[in-house]
């Protein structure tokens, strides 16, 4: 009996042990190290002079950094709103009891996630190209000329990036919402139908509230991932035109690896972390508020 109790007490730590070892080596101490160096001068990879908050002060005085923050927030908000609405819609339609071929739709919608980000960038460049692109060839069949250079437009370029991400992400997150939907009991809809609720009311009163846990989960995950937007604008615009697609991750990359200022780079990434956490907390608490308000 005594042995039994002991093992129950030790067991969780043993189960956690492999995780803790990996976590300590590959996350925790690198994080502590990089947090420290954001306050120090770095000399050949070794910490030398203490410089206090000066890195943080410098970056907040850099208009390019502020621009990168706005661009990133703009992208995160617009992309996530569009992507999530689309993903929920697709999931609801895909889950509809009256249609067949669901598996085929699901597989097709999921497939873009299989394309790696740099390749997505190259392919969309080929789709938008004015002379040899897909849009040109398509419209050309109807005698329409296509002349819009979307990646050269200060407003259009970010929207092109958003489009690429929506294309890649909505089918993937649709799978998460589908999972959430299948757990909603069919009887709820049946009784609602008897009460005379139409499809939209059913969606608002049953689907959406019951999807909330999954929604929050997707919001957190997708917010954090989309904060790190890098590959597509890096390959297609290098942040241009006029820094309109410059993201925080690009700023971080440029600071750390191109300007080789790792200590400042560390400061940038901690500002990024704070923003990411804040954004997830805000969006989640708004979700919770609106759901409790409705109840």
């Amino acid at each position: 009996m005594k042995v039994h109790i002991d093992s129950r007490r030790i067991a969780p730590y043993l189960f956690l042990l492999p995780f803790l070892i990996f976590f300590a080596i590959f996350r925790l101490w690198p994080i502590i190290w990089s947090f420290l160096i954001s306050f120090f001068q770095l000399d050949d990879g070794d910490i030398s002079g203490f410089i206090g908050m000066s890195n943080y002060i410098t970056i907040f005085h850099d208009p390019t950094f502020i621009k990168a923050i706005w661009n990133t927030l703009y992208f995160v908000v617009v992309y996530n709103v569009i992507m999530i609405i689309l993903a929920i819609m697709l999931a609801v339609f895909c889950n509809s009891s009256i249609i067949g071929g669901k598996k085929a739709y699901r597989a097709v919608f999921f497939s873009p996630i299989a394309m790696s980000l740099p390749v997505v960038a190259v392919v969309f460049d080929l789709i938008f190209a004015r002379n040899i692109g897909f849009i040109t060839s398509l419209l050309g069949m109807f005698g329409i000329e296509y002349n819009y250079r979307i990646f050269a437009s200060m407003t259009g370029a970010m929207w092109a990036v958003i489009l690429m991400r929506v294309w890649r992400g909505s089918g993937y997150y649709c799978a998460y919402f589908l999972a959430g939907l299948t757990s909603i009991p069919e009887e709820l809809y049946e009784s609602a139908m008897i009460d005379g609720a139409n499809a939209f009311q059913q969606f608002r009163k049953i689907t959406l509230p019951l999807l909330k846990p999954m929604l929050i989960f997707v919001i957190i995950m997708s917010t954090i991932l989309s904060f790190q937007l890098f590959d597509e604008p890096w390959i297609l615009t290098q942040g241009g035109p006029a820094n309109s697609t410059l993201t925080l991750q690009m700023y971080l990359y440029q600071t750390s690896f191109l300007k080789q200022d790792f200590s400042k780079g560390a400061a940038v990434s901690y500002v990024m972390t704070l923003l990411m956490l804040a954004a997830s907390i805000v969006s989640v608490s708004r979700q919770k508020e609106s759901s409790s308000g409705r109840k």
């Binding site: 460049d125 190209a129 002379n131 040899i132 692109g133 050269a152 297609l236 615009t237």
Partner: peptide
């Protein structure tokens, strides 16, 4: 006006 070295760019030379 072109983005240098993209497929669109070489397409204009070719055309």
């Amino acid at each position: 006006s072109l983005t240098f070295f993209t497929p669109e760019f070489w397409g204009e030379f070719k055309a």
